[in-house]
Simulated scan of single mutants.
Amino acid sequence: MKIGIIGLGSMGRGMAANLVQAGHEVVAWNRSGGEVAGVTMVATPAEAMQGEVLFTMLSQDETIEEVIVGPGLLEQATKGLIHVVSATISVAYAKKLVDLHKAAGLTYVSAPVLGRPDVAAAGKLNVLAAGPAEALAKVSPALEAMAGKVWDLGPEAPTANAVKIACNMMITMAIEGMAEAVVLSESEGCGREQFFEVMLGTLFGCRVYENYSGIIAKGEYQPGFKATLGLKDLRLASEVAKASGGDLPMLAAVHKRMGEAVEAGNGDKDWGVMAGYTIATAKGATAKDATGG
């Protein structure tokens, strides 16, 4: 299959490499350049839109608008192209993209992914896919090349975006929960490594707790998924909650706390840095003391 990719960041690079390994013909455009073995780099994003399928890993609504929609590239794409957006975008913008693609003779699929860059490189992402059944069937070989599992969430593309936003919201709640648990357990002499050993060995032995307890225990927040992007995703979750009329107090709390952590100078660190901020402020230290900000 001839596949285009727009966006070769830390996630897109791994996805592209796995598509090549699966035998697909892959061309790519990236704003900041770069190369991936086996991928043909093209000079413009329009050139990446001349195949059967296009994947984009552009981090937010505004970037897709700037790179693809605003310049009129949908109208320049090969007719019948299936555009798969694998980044976390808003539900409202996904609905707009469905209509724009239909008007241009294209098909839109939402397929945001769960997993960090190392998971993308290993081809083990959880792919949350939604869109017309015929389009999902056609892109299935490409999705499976980068996935540990593909989750079919039905014919309406924005459903996948809502599920991804909800999952990211839950990750931030887990991060904040671990931070607050550390504050309690350390206050009575239990080190965080020992606490996390108990936590993982009893009731909380799942991937999110395993990944982020290690980050929190070390207090090292090198970027895997930046806090600024985590804050963006919590804003998207708040927008969905407002549109649904739901009162979600835990969401409001983690949204506020992530915002505070970013404002303290931690925006380029891993979003687990929210835990360092919570622990520091609870103990009367500065966020800089805990996170190296």
Score class of each variant (00 low, 15 high):
4 G>Q: 04
4 G>L: 06
6 I>W: 07
9 G>M: 02
20 V>G: 04
22 A>R: 00
25 E>H: 12
27 V>G: 01
31 R>V: 11
33 G>L: 12
51 G>V: 04
51 G>Y: 06
52 E>S: 09
52 E>Y: 04
55 F>T: 01
60 Q>A: 08
63 T>N: 02
72 G>N: 10
75 E>Y: 14
80 G>S: 00
88 T>V: 15
90 S>T: 10
94 A>G: 06
99 D>N: 13
101 H>A: 01
105 G>C: 09
106 L>H: 05
108 Y>D: 00
108 Y>P: 07
112 P>C: 06
113 V>D: 06
118 D>M: 10
118 D>C: 02
120 A>H: 11
132 P>C: 09
133 A>R: 14
134 E>R: 07
147 A>W: 10
148 G>Q: 11
160 A>E: 08
161 N>P: 12
171 I>A: 01
173 M>Y: 05
173 M>P: 07
184 L>D: 04
186 E>N: 13
190 C>L: 15
193 E>F: 08
195 F>Y: 13
198 V>P: 10
209 Y>M: 14
217 A>L: 09
219 G>E: 02
220 E>W: 03
220 E>F: 02
226 K>D: 13
227 A>M: 06
229 L>P: 08
231 L>A: 15
232 K>M: 07
237 A>K: 00
246 G>W: 14
254 V>A: 07
254 V>Q: 00
272 G>Q: 11
279 I>P: 06
282 A>I: 10
284 G>H: 10
286 T>C: 09
286 T>M: 12
287 A>P: 05
287 A>R: 06
288 K>I: 05
289 D>G: 01
290 A>V: 02
292 G>C: 09
293 G>K: 02
